[in-house]
């Protein structure tokens, strides 16, 4: 079966007036229907930029991109605006880190869900509201009829994120993009929302890309995990492979740091050093300055992504070395 989403050699560069940011440098991955791909990485590693590229949500006039992003074989990066707008929210939907700021504060939750439904289905106002009510029930928001009339600031963080999920699923998308959707929530609420996403994903056979900097969360929700560093995927493997035998020194560092103590909530700061500046296209392994295994050849050329087994990819010259 062919993949639902195919990302190939994605480069994203921002040209701001004072500097250039090479935020994503040659990222490739697939997402299958009904599969959750976790993208794990430190803050600033390019996770959000990668995710937003799939809907082309970057400021158009100062973003350069190349590569290819195909949904069911259809290229998104060169698609015209109208087709893109039809695809946004209908085939691919997105949920955000801060549900408090991702809803328009001056419209009711019901209006904002119904608006999306009407945009893509052409339903009448009252039918759309009916659908919005069903959706709120589906994400298990209590007394949905009243919640439709609530404004975002009148709901708790957890309820808002549920409402955001309802909005995202309103037009039966086949791919859900989740950008750290539980980071802003309290621990208990976080688990509930995670479980809800997992459950809905199975029920609706959704492809999900789940971006997080939280290893515990990534392990819990993902079927496969991609580890991102400085705008590149450095390792891509199934959860089992990643947990049992991470191959990239960066992934190993991340996972080693979580073996002791609880996994969830662990920040990826256990490795000394800081990620590189993204002002230039990397000419060497970006992780080399922080890597305790660094060799001369690591800084002579950027390493390529190589296979080390059954769909297990690693970007490291030492990938073949025993763990």
């Amino acid at each position: 079966m062919s993949a639902l989403l195919e990302v190939r050699d994605l480069d994203v560069t921002f040209m701001t007036p004072d500097r250039t940011v090479h935020a994503v440098n040659g990222v490739s991955f697939d997402v299958k229907r009904g599969e959750t791909l976790g993208i794990l990485g430190e803050s600033g590693s390019g996770k959000s930029v990668t995710l937003r590229s799939i809907l082309r949500l970057h400021p158009e006039h100062r973003t350069r991109w190349s590569g290819s992003i195909k949904l069911e074989g259809v290229e998104i990066l060169t698609m015209d605006r109208r087709t893109l707008n039809d695809l946004r929210g209908q085939k691919i939907a997105m949920i955000f880190q801060e549900p408090a700021t991702a809803f328009d504060p001056v419209f009711t939750i019901g209006h904002q869900i119904a608006e999306t439904v009407r945009r893509h289905t052409g339903k009448s106002e009252s039918d759309a509201l009916k659908r919005a009510r069903e959706l709120l029930e589906m994400v298990r928001i209590p007394s949905p009829a009243q919640r439709l009339k609530a404004y975002p600031h009148e709901m708790s963080g957890g309820m808002r994120q549920r409402a955001m999920i309802a909005l995202a699923l309103s037009c039966n998308p086949s791919l859900l993009l989740a950008d750290e959707p539980t980071t802003a929530l309290d621990a208990t609420v976080q688990i509930q929302v995670l479980l809800l996403i997992r459950e809905l994903q199975r029920e609706l056979d959704l492809g999900v890309i789940f971006v997080t900097h939280d290893i515990g969360v990534a392990v819990e929700v993902s079927d496969r995990i991609g580890v991102m560093y400085a705008g590149k995927l450095v390792e891509l493997a199934s959860v089992e492979q990643m947990v049992d035998a991470p191959r990239h020194p960066y992934s190993r560092g991340l996972l080693a740091s979580t073996v002791q103590g609880s996994m969830r909530g662990q920040r990826l700061e256990a490795i000394p050093g800081a990620p590189p500046d993204l002002g230039e296209v990397p000419t060497a392994c970006s992780f080399a300055p922080r890597c305790k295994f660094a060799e001369p050849q690591c800084v002579s050329a950027p390493p390529t992504l190589g296979s080390v087994g059954d769909s297990h990819l690693v970007r490291c010259v030492r990938a073949e070395a025993p763990a």
């Binding site: 937003r52 809907l55 949500l57 707008n85 039809d86 695809l87 946004r88 929210g89 209908q90 939907a93 997105m94 955000f96 801060e98 700021t101 991702a102 809803f103 328009d104 504060p105 001056v106 419209f107 608006e115 999306t116 945009r119 893509h120 909005l167 995202a168």
Partner: peptide, 23 residues
């Protein structure tokens, strides 16, 4: 962020302008 969210759900520029103006 909600402007990005509006774009992400397929609203066109005119519809987004309406949201922006009300805000």
């Amino acid at each position: 962020e909600f402007v990005t969210a509006l774009q992400a759900k397929g609203m066109n520029d005119r519809q987004i302008l309406f949201h922006v103006l009300k805000n």
